[in-house]
Amino acid sequence: MVAQNIFFYVIAAVMAFSAIRVVTVKNVVHAAMYLVLVLAGVAAQYVLLASEFLAATQVLVYIGAIVVLVLFGVMLTRAKLGEDVNLTNDYWYVGAFTGVILFVLLAVSLLDHFGDEPLDQANAETQIVGNTEQVSDAIFGTYVVPFEAVSVLLLAALVGAIVLARKD
């Protein structure tokens, strides 16, 4: 278990650092790169949490598709590739204040409530093998209706995005 812990903290440290950099760097492209780091970290965490299917999806969808999309967006909107000092708006301190307070509050209440509750390893071990299978059972069994809804949503988003972005 110690190994898992070490992994966790290493990855978590990278993620936290990157997440903060995403919203603080002055270069949009760099922000996108940091975002990649964060997303990859999340995928790693999924592995730690024994959800390898999710980890794979994360890598495919997020890093493979979304980040690329974002980068396209950056390029298409001709963001400066160098430093852009004007990335934050005039009320950034309200946001900062909110973010910090929010974090403090969350931390306080989480520590307060979950204390040192362990992640239920016993259960997790039984699920380690065959998690993908369970996921597929759940998606196409219990959650089939939401699944269909999501697929319709994706279709709608697809159509919508095309309609919006099309040059007339």
């Binding site: 997440a19 919203v23 009320y91 950034w92 946001g95 909110t98 929010l102 974090f103 969350l106």
Partner: peptide, 13 residues
């Protein structure tokens, strides 16, 4: 929580 707070900050600022 860290990710979330950073995200909130980004959205707002």
């Amino acid at each position: 929580a860290i990710l979330f707070s950073a995200g909130v900050y980004g959205v707002l600022a």
